[in-house]
Design a protein around this nucleic acid. Sequence first.
RNA 1: GUCCCCAUCGUCUAGUUGGCCUAGGACACUGGCCUCUCACGCCGGCAACAGGGGUUCGAAUCCCCUUGGGGACGCCA
Length: 502
Amino acid sequence: MPDPCRPAPLLRYAPPGRPGCSCRQPADKRDPMTVRTRFAPSPTGYLHVGGARTALFSWLHARRHGGTFVLRVEDTDLERSTAESVNAILEGMTWLGLEYDEGPLFQTERFDRYQEVIDGLLEQGHAYRCDCPRERLDVLRAKQMERKEKPKYDGHCRTRDIDPTTPHVIRFRTPIEGTVGFDDMIRGRVTWENSELDDLVIRKSDGSPTYNLAVVVDDLDMRISHVIRGEDHVSNTPRQVHIFRALGAHVPVFAHVPMILGDDGARLSKRHGAVSVMQYREEGILPEALLNYLVRLGWSHGDQEIFSVDEMVALFDLESVNKSASTFNTDKLLWLNQHYITQADPAHLARELSWHLGQLGIDPSDGPELIEVVRAQQGRAKTLVELAAISAFFYRDPADYDAKAAKKHFKAAALEPLSRAREALAGLASWTPEVLHALVEGVAAELEVGMGKIAQPLRVAVSGRAATPGIDVTLDLVGRDACLRRIDRALDYIREQAESAV
RNA sequence: GUCCCCAUCGUCUAGUUGGCCUAGGACACUGGCCUCUCACGCCGGCAACAGGGGUUCGAAUCCCCUUGGGGACGCCA
């Protein structure tokens, strides 16, 4: 019976700033049954939607079971890892609200530990040195491909005794016979013939560990109970299982989530447009909408479509995650986004919107109260970008008229209703939606026409567009001065049109 | 090419131990209602169990094959 407070030396893990022995940690963190999940991105780019969903599932699983969520940066590839990527990923996680309990931990800070493990593996004969030149490997691979075989290392150095002082890599000695397998929470039992595997490199010639070695050591040291990651990792798993066993360790539970595909059925990539999580923010997507969209991609709870984060935490379970890949569908994301914009607290939305208005060169402090504009417009836009665009007229005169709207509502016949309305507006004692509503109705009654005959020309005159909130609210927010000024301009425009038409 | 995985409307999916499925919901599309416009909302429509064999009284649900798709085959992660 191993003492949980005294893990074998190989399993030691010292998170930065914490005591090395888990004895000093709270009881729940010492319990081997405690759920511990991790998100382990490699910092070679931004956080994309696929990674974000994996992170979400991991986070959800930890939260659901009162466990711990660890963020680990897999930066063993010194060539490609960048600090900017680390920041971009952290920024994305923060924006989505996927807070981690431990980390970020960096693999580059644990090289000594990997070396220690590799030494042990070497000593016990689970690994060996290999100095096969690249050319040899290339030829080998080419020949195998030619023979229509799966390219694999042939174990050339298995029994050779390579001088440790000469350049070499270290390979893991994979069992030649038998099978390996693991139980996946999403896909069930998956097995391989060991003969399908080869002796993978676990330490590069520059001394750094490879991915397959580092993940195993980290997941072990960090006592990860559930490895939740993309399906593209299933084929790595049997190799990792072998390493876990060679280390005499228990393998964690695996859950490989299906891929997210682009519209063309291929794996999601940059060419599919906005796949960076932060780009969605710039395009005016609310984080709760993205989260809701992502959680429903591959997971479901009956027919429910709308999930607050609290509901996700309460209902999410890995067992009901789909096995098949799914296609990213922007339309549905937009639908959710509109839903969340409609539901959002106006004050909160106003803060979000002001940035987007700023992008249009508008200072929302100069004009109607932004929160009132939000109340009037909320629910009329699918994104914050769109919300800003349709709200700009509250803060500045329309630069031009929507062509179709002008053509339809700025006919000569609109002159009379518009001038009547202008007169009435100019003489108004008070300026409230109620009064304005009555005014428009009054003008319509006077001219014996429908309300639309008055409201539409007015709307286009004041906003430049065919669609705005109710005419009363619109006029109210635009304000008397701007309304009169814009109506005058519209009257001029209509007269000009009429003249040039003759 | 080899291995692994997957397969219900265009898309996301329900379909929990085979019968209640003449396959349900949502997005998109679409007809209508509401209406000062747009959006929302409401009512309706279109649209799927990849194909073929089995097993069974009975299969979208189980098995096999085919086909299709994805992933992996790196001193990348």
